[in-house]
Amino acid sequence: MQFTNVTIFCFFASYFCALILELTQFLKVSKVVRWSSFALAFAGFVAQTIYLVERSRHSDLPPLLGSTHDWLLVSAWLSIVFYLGAKVWDQSLSIGLFVLPVVLLLIGASRFVSDQPNPRVTIAYWWTMVHASFWVLGILGVILAFVMSLMYLLQHYRLKHKKAPLPALRMLSLERLSRMNWWLIVSSVPLLTLGMVTGLWMSYLRAGSAEPVDLAQLDFVMFALVWVGMTFLFGWLLVSRKATGRLVAWRTILACAFLLVTILAIEFLSADTIHGPEKQTPQASMNHQVASNHFGAIS
């Protein structure tokens, strides 16, 4: 089998079909369909893993350091790991309805952002690794907090409106969702903070190099604003005594949506001059790669 033949389409289609099967549960609850959905998601996970490993092997960089394209895929991959873990823990849980759309969004977004490695990686390789790890794990926490908050609001709506639970929509209890949400925010904000701190430290290290980082850029200001917003949410969560679960869920959704939209917007608009070179989408790079016969089958 040619692993290089595995494309984004393979795992995107797998996750998409898994989501469709999850949605069919609303028409008729079936264990077979539920297991089929899980199997498709797992197949997608295997394909995505192969894709990332192949990318890493060809660029000679870990996926986290490869490019924006890679770390979006790593975020999606980590979300899928969470999804599969949750399904193994409780097969009847309807977590896929919430996680799979976010995963599809991240994979879809990765198709339109730069897949060229950051040229500054070699200057502080290990610091870059630490910085990217904090950043990706922080964003994963934010994504999951977003998912948990959505579930919380749906569950809260059902309970407040005294509606019977739908067999196709099995969610965790408000107490557990609230606790998970709290922990995800409380752990992801320090991770994002450490990501910011290590980023600043790297820019200091690169100050004298051939590729210095200019912090007076829109993208840095945007990242800083997002971080400040998340930090406020974090602080409010820690000190507030009147925070109801529903209020926390709403604020989390707003903060997380703001963060995700900002990051994706920066990448789409090619405004991210800190983390990579000028935007070159996988489609563009494919032509280049086909020409060089180096990485011809990735997209």
């Binding site: 569950q155 969610m171 209890s173 408000l174 557990r176």
Partner: peptide, 10 residues
């Protein structure tokens, strides 16, 4: 079963 356990985990 249907309401209480959706509010509280334990």
């Amino acid at each position: 079963g249907d309401f209480g356990k959706s509010i509280f985990d334990r």
